[in-house]
């Protein structure tokens, strides 16, 4: 009896309270919100919205590829107003579930879905990678820099291609070492392997490594500290993680995109279609803060800003792996 009553009270409490609030569901990728990188950024954006916009946020982490669709369905069934899918892997699920739940709005980050109730957030990672590549080349003494990707997938190759172009733009004679942690989703969560690869690249003479590997990044930072070399973080601002050893972080402002979308919905300005974030709108950027101001001088920043402007104006064409593949 008591338990039943308790349940009823709970149910009433939970439904009553949220009658007016927007309900936002966030489906994170396997890496989880503690990856201090891609998923973290998405979660930060959403929780900022929770604080500032007064929405109700519920986030979940996928257990496997087939569970993603299930999670989107559950959110839709529970009449959430907006369901956000983080990561390319959720594209198909969003496509399918959105078609069946026209009243629910969906957002897919890093994927493209064309439907009247879906907004796709795309980021021009190659542009940012080009910039940090240019910076790495400026700072390198050995004329050799490294790149470590997480899972070997097109998105991560896109980082690599942009980065290499940035390096070569500075000086064609530079060498770029390129390694990937693995081929399974574990790659996002394997700092030990990341460290091993980083140590190996340092051994081969690289002195700066750009890493795009989710929660595995910390392994590369450790290696940089150990060998007194430099690393470049990704997605979130990771400069604080090993101050003095992280040259900069290539920012992919998923938090901004997520926050802006929730705000649009709140202000009834939600529009479907593809929204691209790039250098122009600061959706893609590089991080400067107190942790790396000693590493990157004002002079360097000036040079970078010049390159940035040239990319925005279209004077520099950054190669895009996605487009290369289609050819």
């Amino acid at each position: 009896m008591f338990i039943k009553k308790l349940m009823m009270v709970l149910l009433i409490a939970s439904t009553g309270q949220t009658a007016e609030k927007l309900k936002i569901g966030l489906v994170l990728d396997k890496g989880g919100k503690e990856d201090k990188s891609f998923n973290s950024a998405a979660y930060q954006g959403a929780s900022l919205a929770e604080k500032e916009l007064g929405i109700e946020l519920k986030y979940v982490e996928a257990t496997d590829v087939n569970s993603i669709e299930n999670l989107h369905r559950q959110f839709a069934k529970k009449k959430f107003d907006l369901v956000i899918g983080i990561g390319f892997a959720q594209q198909d699920a969003v496509k399918k579930v959105a078609a069946q739940n026209p009243d629910t709005k969906f957002v897919i980050v890093d994927g493209e879905v064309t439907a009247p109730n879906v907004r796709s957030l795309m980021f021009e990672e190659h542009q940012g990678s080009f910039l940090v590549g240019y910076l790495a080349a400026m700072k390198s003494k050995t004329k050799k820099v490294g790149y470590i990707g997480g899972m070997d997938i097109p998105l991560i190759r896109r980082f690599a291609v942009g980065y290499e172009a940035g390096v070569k733009h500075f000086d064609k004679s530079f060498t770029v070492l390129e390694n990937y942690i693995g081929i399974t989703a574990d790659s996002w969560n394997n700092p030990a392997k990341a460290k091993e690869l980083a140590l190996n690249q340092f051994q081969q003479g690289a002195d700066i490594i750009f890493v795009a590997a989710g929660a595995s990044n910390s392994g590369v930072f450790d290696a940089a500290e150990e060998k007194k070399k430099l690393a470049i973080g990704v997605d979130s601002n990771q400069n604080w993680m090993k101050p003095g050893f992280i040259l900069t972080s290539m920012l992919k402002r998923v938090d901004q995109g997520v926050f802006a979308t929730i705000k649009d919905l709140k202000d009834s300005k939600f529009t479907p279609g593809i929204v691209r974030y790039g250098l122009k709108d600061k959706g893609i950027d590089y991080a400067m803060d107190k942790h790396n101001e000693k590493l990157v001088s004002a002079d360097d920043v000036k040079k970078l800003e010049k390159i940035k402007a040239e990319i925005i104006e279209g004077k520099i064409k950054v190669p895009d792996f996605y487009l290369m593949k289609k050819k």
């Binding site: 997938i153 081929i183 289609k326």
Partner: peptide
């Protein structure tokens, strides 16, 4: 065999 219509592996 990469699916040309998808960024997914």
């Amino acid at each position: 065999l990469q699916n040309p219509d998808s960024q997914n592996p």
